[in-house]
Design a binder for these strands. Structure first.
Length: 865
RNA sequence: GGGAGUUUAGCUCAGUUGGGAGAGCAUCUGCCUUACAAGCAGGCGGUCGUAGGUUCGAGCCCUACAAUUCCCACCA
């Protein structure tokens, strides 16, 4: 039995998890007799370590999975990891650099091997970490975005989209990272303000009649200028439109054009247009049919177009040289400091270069339509609802998705070019013979796919798609996606439109958005700030259960949460409380033959407890169904501590100490209730609940609490009367405790209290024990308190008449205030008319009671005089 | 520039269709009462950001404003 020892989670968490794994409780099977429930785990980067954000995200998922599993669903939580192509490549290149190598030196094949060695090395580290936090994912179905099934899904999806004309190759301006030597998507560009300079450069007129001045932050791109633009409404420059300028440091001439894009008030009102190296200029260039001149190459060096003097220079050197030459030629008006926003590569932090390149794109306009519709129609619900706005905004403004990357890590694009006739073939395997020219030699496109391409297929690739597997048929669409709001648009949207395109349905029915975990000052946790909290350290010290509770207690959906060790301490204190409650239950159950709940003779306190328990079960279940796990946990926490421990356990003691049948009955109910509470708590604190469950005596015990049934509310309307009766007793106890404290009587001193009304023996025992008093019907003077049971007088306090009178007057004042309040409401005809009848009745009842109390108090006062 | 969140006790935050303001921590008082001092009992503490409006009634609904955080776009 479980009657000794203190709460030491480190002594049992590991073993319990091992048992769960051995018993295969995490494994979900296709079972047509059960309803499916499925969560696909958002795959963390395979090489990352578990951080506090994961802990929150996964706790949400584990709570829901465990809840549904206990409800009898076939609950699948499918885990996996992501290869994070660009992030991994950056790290691999760094590693090679340390070894004095480059990826080009070792070649593509060897590089692939390096990548796989890397995956294998880190492969299950993060998943092992997740296990220590108690997560109940089905590890048998672990997937990786580069594994066979995922690769097969990627190939299938690519070729389908290609054949439908939804994937195409195009030349356009894209963000290019000269360090990663790859194009990156808009989402992978992070902007930050940087101190730079604004160069004011003189562009002479071609006819030698003076010059104009343009302002730029990128003087080195002037070799790519193909025009200077002014606003068509700008009176200053209207006459100049059409005139030709001599481009400094070159022999070229460029025109002055008019375009709305230019703001009159900014800089000089004249903008140099460099279509190949600026997104806005690119658009202007398209409108005016300007030539694209690339002056920066993919290495981040100046190209031949910029002239012999500049060719091969870095951007930085070129900039300095341009400045020097302009100065020498008297073409530099001034240089002023200027702070502006500069885009950087998310992974390697290098400033990005807008560049014209040839890339593969996914055409979005049609693809996006069902994804918008499903949310509008309610086929996919987003919690909280307000995030729908972000979702729609994103999809309505979406650009074609650039999916090719010039790196080596990831899924290679399944496009082959005929060596002879350049025929383009999309194929899962290398084609053997060209249909057009019969050539047998093909070269595969060197690029790989954006990581998000495989992540977009994640909800169905993990279930076996494109094969028509049983898993896919049973579990797809999945039940809910759990993720933080920062990734809703980047990832969730992709899964939805790819889900419709490939798997013909929404990938998940619900999308649950939670906030981010911040530090105590509300800052984002990051390596550079050094404010990160390692969930594994916390778990090791305080137990995984305490960590989980600290993360999700009192959090609201979609709202950031601040993490603090105070919360962990509090959670541990709560678990300790549960631990001690279990010791109490155990201690008194050992010598008792438990009676099934239907057959137990229940007294008032038992009915009161069962009545309240039934309501708790309803509330918790409904909150969990709404994904409000923060609220559900609060419900359970408050009930266990404030209702069960503080009141019910104490109420049980008189019966327990009496022994015999009365004890057996009480302990049976106590056991029943505690068992239900453990089950309610289990999804949140799986380890300690399992440990206690295994070590206490209960009827109908399952092999594990994990697979026990989640409590369901029973009909308790018959207990309502007893419930109200108990509430009256508790009210009296609280009021008596209160006057005792006010009278400065120590809480452990048994006070003599006068009471003249009728009480059952039970009630008398309870009140005497819990208020620490002895009741007597011998009248005396003292502090008076009026309760719904009658009048109690505290006798053992030496008080003179004056003080008692003062007390009474204070009570009378209080009650008068109440009476006036009720009267005011009830005398308002519009309240009586319009407010719900039950409310009006309630108010009338209160007024009546208060009037009675008022009369009693007044007669007391009079009798003193 | 566009959009969203937040603003409630000293601190961290709940508050489920509008119907007498809540928890934890901190603090104060008294208790080592036979499950638990990681505890028990009792207190102190709030014009619910500001100003209007709707309503019999507003922390909750509407409007404006302020502070703060974030997202998107952009910054020649």
């Amino acid at each position: 039995m479980h009657t000794k020892g203190t709460f030491k989670p480190e002594e049992f968490e590991r073993d319990i998890y091992k048992t769960w794994e051995e018993k295969k409780y995490f494994h979900a099977e296709v079972d047509k007799s059960k309803e499916p429930f499925c969560i696909i785990m958002p795959p963390p980067n395979v090489t990352s370590q578990a951080h506090i954000g994961h802990a929150l995200d996964m706790t949400y998922q584990d709570v829901l999975t465990r809840f549904k599993r206990m409800q009898g669903k076939s609950a699948l939580w499918l885990p996996g990891a992501d290869h994070a192509a660009l992030a991994t490549e950056v790290k691999l290149v760094e590693k090679l650099k340390k070894e004095g190598k480059t990826k080009e030196q070792i070649g593509r094949e060897a590089f692939d091997k390096e990548a796989w060695a890397w995956y294998n090395h880190y492969g299950d580290r993060i998943m092992t970490q997740f296990k220590t936090l108690g997560f109940s994912a089905d590890w048998d179905r672990y997937h990786f975005t580069m594994d066979k099934t995922s690769t097969s899904a990627v190939l299938e999806a690519f070729i389908r989209l290609y054949d439908k004309g939804l994937i195409y190759r195009g030349t356009r301006q894209t963000h290019y990272c000269v360090s990663c030597k790859s194009v990156i998507s808009d989402d992978e560009v992070v902007y930050s303000d940087e101190k730079g300079s604004m160069w004011h450069i003189r562009y002479p007129f071609a006819d030698g009649s003076g010059y104009i001045v343009v302002a730029t932050t990128r003087p080195e791109t002037l070799f790519g200028d193909t025009a200077v633009a002014v606003n068509p409404k700008d009176k200053r420059y209207k006459k100049l439109v059409g005139k030709m300028l001599k481009l400094p440091l070159t022999t070229r001439e460029i025109p002055i054009i008019a375009d709305d894009y230019v703001e009159e008030s900014f800089g000089t009102g004249m903008v140099k247009i460099t279509p190949a190296h600026d997104p806005n200029d690119y658009e202007v260039g398209k409108r005016h049919n300007l030539e694209l001149i690339s002056v920066i190459d993919k290495e981040g060096k100046m190209s031949a177009v910029s002239g012999k003097e500049f060719e091969g220079l870095s951007i930085k050197d070129a900039r300095a040289k341009v400045e020097k030459l302009l100065k020498e030629q008297g073409l530099l008006e001034k240089v002023e400091p200027y702070t502006h926003s500069v885009g950087h590569c998310e992974r390697c932090k290098t400033p990005i270069e807008p560049m014209i390149t040839e890339q593969w794109f996914v055409k979005m306009s049609e693809l996006v339509k069902p994804a918008i519709k499903v949310v509008k129609d309610g086929g996919l619900k987003i919690y909280p609802k307000r995030f729908e706005k972000n979702y729609f905004h994103w999809l309505n403004n979406i650009q074609d998705w650039c999916i090719s990357r010039q790196i080596w890590t990831g899924h290679r694009i399944p496009i082959y070019y005929c060596d002879k006739c350049k025929n383009v073939v999309a194929s899962k395997n290398a084609p053997t013979k060209c249909e057009k020219c019969g050539c047998t030699h093909f070269t595969q496109d060197p690029d790989v796919l954006d990581t998000w391409f495989s992540s977009a297929l994640w909800p169905f690739s993990t279930l076996g798609w494109p094969e028509k597997t049983e898993d896919f048929n049973y579990f797809y669409p999945t039940s809910v996606l759990v993720t933080a709001y920062d990734i809703l648009t980047q990832w969730a949207t992709k899964m939805v439109y790819m889900g419709f395109e490939c798997a013909k349905d929404t990938p998940f029915r619900n999308c649950l958005i939670h906030g981010l975990v911040r530090d105590e000052q509300g800052r984002k946790m990051s390596k550079s700030l050094g404010n990160g909290i390692d969930p594994l350290e916390v778990s090791e010290k305080y137990g995984a259960d305490a960590l989980r509770l600290a993360l999700v207690k009192d959090i609201a959906l979609g709202i950031d949460t601040k993490f603090s060790m105070t919360k962990v301490d509090n959670s541990r204190a709560f678990l300790n409380k549960v631990w001690n409650a279990s010791k109490f239950v155990s201690l008194h159950s050992s010598d008792v033959e438990l009676v099934p709940i239907e057959e137990v003779k229940k007294d008032v306190k038992d009915k009161w407890m069962l009545y309240k328990l039934s309501h708790l079960i309803k509330t918790v279940t409904s909150n969990l169904e709404k994904f409000d796990i923060g609220m559900a946990l609060s419900n359970i926490y408050n009930f266990i501590w404030n209702e069960f421990c503080d009141w019910y356990v104490e109420l049980c003691k008189p019966s327990i100490f009496k022994g015999g049948e009365e004890k057996a009955n009480t302990v049976s109910v106590l056991n029943f209730v505690f068992d239900k509470l453990l089950k309610l708590l289990h999804p949140f604190a799986p380890f300690v609940t399992e440990y206690i469950y295994q070590n206490i005596k209960t009827l109908d015990k399952s092999e594990s609490i994990m697979i026990a049934s989640f409590p369901t509310a029973s009909n308790v309307s018959a207990f309502k009367k007893a419930y109200l009766e108990e509430e009256q007793r508790l009210e009296a106890i609280k009021l008596i405790r209160n006057i005792k404290a006010e009278a400065k009587i120590a809480s452990n001193v048994r006070s003599l209290v006068y009471f003249s009304g009728e009480l059952t023996n039970d009630a008398k025992d309870e009140i005497e024990k819990l208020a620490t008093i002895v009741l007597t019907n011998e009248r005396g003077a003292g502090r008076i308190v009026i309760t719904s049971l009658g009048e109690f007088v505290l006798l053992d306090e030496k008080k003179d008449k004056g003080e008692i009178e003062k007390d009474l007057l204070a009570q009378i004042e209080k009650i008068k205030f109440e009476i006036e309040r009720s009267q005011k409401m009830l005398s308002n005809p519009r309240f009586v008319e319009k407010a719900p009848q039950s409310l009006v009745e309630e108010e009338k009842r209160k007024l009546e009671n208060n009037n009675l109390t008022f009369e009693t108090l007044k007669s007391k006062l009079n009798s003193l005089k």
